[in-house]
Design a binder for these strands. Structure first.
Lengths: 160, 160
DNA sequence: GGCAGGTCGTTAGTTGGACTAACGCAACGG
DNA sequence: CCGTTGCGTTAGTCCAACTAACGACCTGCC
């Protein structure tokens, strides 16, 4: 009857084994995201950076200078948290914060040459980290994974 | 040259568009996990439950009664947090907490009939929520997604 | 001109989840 | 008997996501 051995009432391993019901997709996602976060955060910390640094620098390079509120919208970082991120970036001379002459409420944030260099460094750091993150998957599988993830995200994004 | 229209220096949409570099897998994972968490937490809240409730009840049903430390190991919930979860569960009469006669350090946690019923309810709630979560994917794609996720997790789990 | 209503940067604070430290107690192994 | 280990519990840290409110400022409209 039982496919594995004859010990019908064996405790299986009531100590450490994870229950089957805890294999739901939501939980896998959460665990994987935590794992990924750890990996990325540690990797970036070694390069004296945080993921928000990357997000802001990338946004500045791709779309040019902008106000803090603009950067907020582009990166998804709350404008209340943006203050601290920009402090950290300007301490390191990666961006410049200057008052906007056309609108005295605004600061104009500009990426510096050092910022560009740092962004390039972080790009390679992140490439390596993602290679580690996706290590067990073949290139085609990685693509597939990203495609599926993207479709899920797009679907839920436009609900909002 | 430029494939789309002739506006070479158009601001594209420097206000709200997300930079390409922020399409990295780690970020997609993080966003998707956040989305999933919101969905699941809200759904469970409507059923007067939290995900740890489900984890504990599932563990009890699949592997039988156990001490708090055992449940901790099975579910991945820290034993410091387990206290509160079990308080919530026993308030609702979903589990029973009794001293272990064989080891006076331990409490033996047992699922009640009400607990079993609640677990069944939560199972269907979670089924519906996951259907919503994975809505844009076909069944075969959902399988594939879960398989890829699982392989990633297994790989990183056994590194630890 | 003046005022209503919105936006900007900033400070402060909340919530929630993951995780650590340390405690008193009890069991176990030599 | 004594050191070590495991137990349940309390307290508290850390970080990310998110909200509230403020004074300064801009914009549109009467």
């Amino acid at each position: 009857m039982s496919s594995r051995a004859d010990a019908a009432d064996m405790p299986v391993d009531g100590e450490t084994r994870t229950p089957d019901r805890l294999r739901r997709t939501s939980r896998l996602l959460s665990l994987m995201s935590a794992q990924s976060d750890r990996l990325i955060n540690e990797g970036l910390a070694r390069a004296d950076a945080r993921k928000w640094h990357y997000a802001v620098l990338a946004s500045l390079l791709e779309y040019g200078p902008g106000s803090q509120a603009t950067l907020s919208r582009r990166t998804g970082i709350y404008r209340s948290d943006m203050v601290g991120v920009l402090n950290e970036l300007s301490e390191r001379d990666l961006v410049e914060r200057a008052p906007d002459p056309d609108d005295r409420r605004r600061n104009v944030i500009t990426i510096t040459e050092q910022g560009r260099r740092q962004l390039r460094r972080l790009d390679t750091v992140l490439d390596e980290l993602h290679d580690e993150l996706l290590a067990p998957l073949l290139p085609a599988e990685r693509d597939q994974f990203v495609r599926l993830l993207t479709r899920l995200l797009d679907h839920h994004a436009q609900q909002a």
